[in-house]
Design a protein around this nucleic acid. Structure first.
Length: 766
DNA sequence: TTAATGGATTTTTTT
DNA sequence: AATCCATTAA
């Protein structure tokens, strides 16, 4: 509680703030945990706190470090602080974790395997490298799906494990092979002088293990602030710990109910355990919501109360914005009708309020298509966020590959890309020859030069590749004079890329040229900010879609993940069906389900005035017609918050009631006997999971196998090899539940994890 | 070497 | 339905 006498009530930095917000702003030294509910004025508090430190505590801006997850958040934070303080604050470090790490590595990188002049690999570069590795190890992509393999590698990296350190986790053959791939993949990155996204964190964390480096930065950053702390993974957590160790002035801000990046390695326990990490921490809860009306908040808190992974003893969100409108729900017969209905509602509210800002939110990107079709049919303008990103378009990537190779001649992935864009008659054969000609420790261009000298190539290839090589020679000398934008334009022309698109003379090519022009102006803009080529390239790879959302857009279509941190007067959430939302793959584990629920919570709390939910009874998914079941989250909505009870066909589907037995099982999706059986098993799973799991989470590895063994002499401990008639041979990863609910997670040798119930699965020791 | 064809496979979310 | 891949024809 802030005292009265000493309270400088009228301090401008405390203006219009409630009591806990003021307390947070004025907290100067020592660890601070700010639990900031949705819409609780978090950014205001953070920025004013930083300003307070500078203005009132006399802290030098250069000793402040603030970490965010998106560039947009970082920019906004910096701008707002700069407006609040009277001194120049340009020396503050306000950035995303990833750009912070990039900055550190560009300074200290000679201590890491990739040095200081690395390129940042984006997901498509990663994919082509891992494919190469898998081919080298003769691992078939069928079983070692590049995406799956990269996921596991990313998982290891997020937990700061290098290949040799992850060995003890590789109990089964599949993981062991992936580990070999991981090892080769890292070597490949090193040869390319490249970091993937995860490496940025990983190498920086390694760097900070060195007491000298750690002390240098730990001393420098006297005040550290981490936004969205609930989304930090192990690497980010350790990074923060290394730095905070020195001054203990660590302020973390977050909301465990909005933790939606578990699949990316985020560990919700980081925020849940903050007070254990820093026992002297002060905890402040921001519970006053300034965004939504009561009905919306009631629905949100009712939904989220079904989760067990929450901070203990946290209060509920409050609002002064009045009761507000009840939540609408629409069930359409078919997916197309659902989007048409939504479009109609948008048109109606547009008619009443032409400037209304509307968002349509969905679980997965594919769901945007139907909305787009319906909108286009009505000639309505919209902004689609996500999907194929600008910097990932083919033509843009082609151009970037030239720039990357100019910036870092070791980048073989980029070389491969641009050497045949536009086509220069280089196929796998020629490419193989070039790569074979690369001298030990040399660059691809040196390999190409050697091959050209040998005179092995003939005709078009020899001629074109000669010009190609010459291009890079000239780039070296002209780079400085041309400047960034000049260089981009020069490459576009001299490479013949622009010409080849012009020759195509199709509508598509025209669009690509436009994109390249847009890229050129982005380069010009960057140049005017005084940035150089390598910095431009960093920015491009680390740019996210969400960074470009104009809040001014009238109608936005985006995933819920993209919508985090945003607010809209009118929000539609579509596709509230089982297997869509909650997503089919997330439903398998209690943790996955809780994360889906948090996602729903995030979706609800985006709405300021009106929230509309919708679903479709039938829908085409991947070309086949599916019957859908209502999302279980619909049942968690309080009836008082809804305009009408939710009906699904003839059933009333509402809080506490559930679907009456007997009716739901008979109408299985697809209707076949296998599907019916599957559904029976699924609903069984669901019942099992409805029982709140008493935080079995922490105890998992040590305690779980024990009770299982007592119950059943045939129980399998993690690591046991088992055989299943349906899936083949695999290794037990974990066990959960007991008695009839005893369920194993099994990693099968052909790849892929499955959760199998001991009772049905027919697992044998194998 | 490249374009075209047919078949398999896919949809979770992203710095 | 739409994309991605591998094989085949030119």
């Amino acid at each position: 509680m802030p005292g009265h006498a000493s309270d400088p009530i009228d301090h401008p930095l405390l203006h219009n703030l409630n009591a806990p917000q003021r307390e947070a702003v004025r907290h100067a030294r020592g660890p601070l945990l700010i639990l900031a509910g949705a819409g609780s004025g978090k950014t205001t508090v953070i920025t004013r706190r930083i300003a307070w430190l500078i203005e009132e505590e006399g802290v030098h801006p250069g000793s402040i470090l603030a970490m965010t997850f998106t560039n947009k958040a970082a920019e906004e934070m910096r701008e707002r602080v700069e407006r609040l303080v009277s001194v120049p604050a340009g020396q503050m470090w306000v950035s995303t974790f990833h750009s912070f790490c990039t900055r550190i590595l560009r300074r200290e990188g000679e201590r890491t395997p990739v040095g200081r002049d690395f390129v940042i690999f984006d997901p498509s570069d990663q994919k082509s490298l891992i494919k190469q590795v898998l081919a080298e190890l003769k691992l078939p992509e069928k079983q070692y799906h590049p995406k799956k393999v990269l996921e596991l590698i990313s998982d290891f990296k997020n937990r700061c494990l290098l290949p040799e350190e992850a060995r003890e986790e590789a109990l089964d053959p599949w993981t062991r092979r992936v580990l070999e791939a991981y090892d080769l993949y890292q070597k490949g990155l090193k040869n390319h002088r490249a970091c993937d996204f995860d490496d940025l964190l990983l190498w920086t964390e390694r760097l900070f293990r060195d007491p000298v480096v750690q002390a240098a930065y730990g001393e420098r950053f006297k005040f550290i602030l981490v936004d969205e702390y609930q989304d930090t993974n192990r690497a980010q957590y350790l990074l923060v710990q290394h730095l905070a160790r020195h001054h203990h002035n660590i302020c973390v801000v977050g909301d465990e109910d909005q933790s939606i990046y578990g699949w990316r390695g985020a560990d919700i326990r980081n925020i849940l355990d903050f007070q254990q990490d820093f026992p002297e921490a002060v905890r402040i809860e921001l519970l006053q919501n300034y965004r939504s009306t009561e009905k919306i908040l009631d629905a949100a808190s009712q939904v989220i109360s079904n989760n067990s992974q929450r901070v203990e003893g946290k209060g509920a969100l409050k609002t002064d914005l009045g009761v507000g409108e009840a939540i609408h729900f629409k069930l359409a017969d078919e997916g197309r009708l659902e989007s048409e209905w939504v479009v109609q509602r948008i048109q109606e509210l547009r008619y009443l309020d032409p400037d209304a800002k509307v968002a349509v939110l969905y679980r997965a990107n594919w769901q945007s298509r139907q909305m787009e079709e319906a909108l286009r049919a009505q000639n309505m303008a919209y902004r689609l966020v996500g999907g194929v990103k600008f910097y990932e378009r083919q033509e843009v990537k082609d151009l970037i590959s030239y720039l990357r190779l100019i910036s870092n001649p070791f980048d073989l992935v980029s070389f491969r890309r641009c050497v045949n864009a536009p086509t220069r008659g280089v196929g796998p054969t020629t490419l193989g020859k070039i790569e074979a000609a690369i001298p030990e420790g040399g660059t691809p261009l040196e390999g190409l030069a050697a091959l050209l000298r040998s005179g092995e190539l003939k005709g078009r290839a020899q001629r074109e590749l000669g010009k190609f090589l010459e291009l890079f020679r000239r780039a070296e000398t002209e780079r400085e004079a041309l400047g960034l934008a000049g260089l981009v334009k020069w490459v576009l022309q001299e490479s013949g890329y622009l010409q080849s698109l012009e020759d195509e003379a199709t509508l598509e090519a025209e669009g690509r040229i436009r994109n390249l022009e847009e890229f050129l102006s982005a380069a010009a803009e960057t140049e005017s900010m005084g940035l150089r080529l390598s910095e431009f390239l960093d920015r491009i790879t680390l740019a996210a879609d969400t960074d470009q959302i104009e809040e001014a857009a009238h109608l936005s279509l985006m995933t819920i993940h993209c919508a985090k941190g945003l607010e809209f007067p009118y929000v539609f959430v579509i596709g509230l069906e089982e297997d869509v939302f909650p997503n089919r793959n997330a439903r398998e584990t209690p943790e996955g389900l809780e994360e889906e629920r948090r996602l729903f919570y995030v979706a609800i709390t985006r709405a300021q005035r009106r929230l509309t939910l919708s679903a479709a009874r039938r829908r085409r998914v991947m070309g086949t017609e599916m019957l859908s079941m209502p999302s279980r989250f619909l049942r968690e909505l309080p009836s008082e918050a809804l305009t009408a009870p939710i009906r699904w066909g003839t059933e009333i589907y509402q809080a506490g009631e559930g679907v009456r037995p007997g009716s739901s099982f008979s109408r299985g999706a697809g209707g076949g006997s296998v599907a019916t059986e599957l559904q029976r098993i699924r609903s069984f799973f669901d019942k099992v999971k409805e029982v709140p799991t008493p935080s079995s989470h922490e105890a998992d590895p040590t305690h779980e196998p024990e009770p299982a063994e007592k119950q059943d002499p045939n129980a399998f401990a993690p690591g046991t090899r088992v055989k299943s008639a349906r899936f083949g041979v695999g290794t037990i990863l974990a066990a959960s539940g007991r008695g009839d609910g005893l369920t194993y997670t099994v990693r099968f040798d052909h790849g892929g994890d499955k959760r199998i119930m001991a009772r049905f699965g027919g697992l044998e020791r194998g």
